[in-house]
Simulated assay, not measured.
Amino acid sequence: MTVVAGAAVVDAVGYDNVMVAIDAHGGRVLYRERMPVPVSMWRPWERWTRETGGARANLFANPVVEVAGRKIAPLICYEQLVLWPILQSMLYRPDAIVLIGNGWWTTGGNIIAIQRASAKAWSALFGVPLVISFNT
């Protein structure tokens, strides 16, 4: 059995939003978010201004990862609303699309419903099974 969960890896200059895989052998970072929310999380100007604290964007990294012998297309939160991450992942023919996100901050809004609808549409379009997990 493998448990996949969301987490953050924090260091002195910023952080990565990640998916971790935890199994009988321990835990590991499975996926690093490619596209955090611009401005509020990902602040690319921090490199030039020597500010710290923002999320890193791993734009072209890890479009698919392996979990329990299956190739998945992971998407964290904002990535579920952006064209690039899902199209990049689909080029690698994943066995499933796996979504995670935090919706606690959207109380009374419809962002989670929009993310679910978008993911279901991509899943149907590419004929790839979908797994969704949100904290609300």
Score class of each variant (00 low, 15 high):
64 V>D: 04
64 V>N: 05
123 S>T: 10
112 I>W: 03
12 A>C: 04
17 N>F: 13
38 P>W: 08
79 E>Y: 09
32 R>T: 05
125 L>I: 14
42 W>P: 01
113 A>G: 15
120 K>T: 04
19 M>E: 03
25 H>G: 12
135 N>K: 08
8 A>V: 11
109 G>C: 02
37 V>P: 01
27 G>Y: 12
20 V>D: 03
21 A>R: 10
132 I>W: 03
41 M>R: 12
93 R>D: 05
25 H>F: 05
105 W>Q: 13
82 V>G: 00
8 A>L: 09
122 W>P: 02
85 P>R: 08
50 R>E: 10
51 E>C: 01
57 A>Q: 07
50 R>N: 07
80 Q>S: 04
53 G>Q: 09
94 P>K: 11
61 A>K: 06
118 S>N: 15
105 W>M: 11
80 Q>Y: 00
78 Y>G: 00
114 I>H: 06
64 V>F: 09
88 Q>I: 00
50 R>I: 00
31 Y>G: 03
35 M>V: 13
123 S>L: 10
94 P>V: 11
10 V>F: 11
99 L>A: 15
33 E>Y: 05
111 I>G: 01
63 P>E: 10
58 N>K: 02
82 V>W: 14
3 V>C: 05
64 V>H: 07
80 Q>H: 00
131 V>D: 14
34 R>G: 14
76 I>Q: 05
67 V>S: 10
47 R>E: 09
51 E>T: 05
104 W>S: 11
88 Q>P: 00
62 N>Y: 03
98 V>Q: 07
8 A>W: 11
17 N>Q: 12
129 P>W: 03
94 P>D: 08
100 I>L: 12
91 L>H: 13
62 N>H: 13
33 E>P: 01
56 R>C: 04
83 L>P: 01
83 L>T: 13
42 W>L: 02
68 A>K: 00
11 D>G: 12
59 L>E: 13
17 N>M: 11
105 W>R: 08
29 V>F: 10
132 I>F: 02
73 A>Y: 07
56 R>L: 07
82 V>N: 03
20 V>M: 15
118 S>D: 07
5 A>V: 10
44 P>Q: 09
44 P>K: 09
74 P>Q: 12
6 G>I: 04
92 Y>Q: 11
67 V>T: 07
130 L>S: 06
75 L>M: 15
9 V>R: 14
2 T>I: 07
82 V>M: 11
36 P>A: 10
31 Y>R: 07
86 I>G: 03
31 Y>C: 05
4 V>I: 14
86 I>W: 07
44 P>M: 08
133 S>K: 12
88 Q>D: 15
86 I>Y: 06
123 S>P: 08
80 Q>N: 03
7 A>G: 15
37 V>L: 13
113 A>S: 12
131 V>Y: 09
4 V>N: 05
119 A>I: 03
130 L>W: 04
17 N>C: 06
41 M>A: 14
48 W>L: 15
99 L>Q: 03
9 V>M: 08
28 R>M: 06
99 L>E: 00
130 L>F: 02
99 L>W: 00
46 E>I: 00
28 R>Y: 04
124 A>L: 11
87 L>H: 13
39 V>S: 10
134 F>A: 04
34 R>S: 11
123 S>H: 12
110 N>P: 00
9 V>D: 13
46 E>S: 01
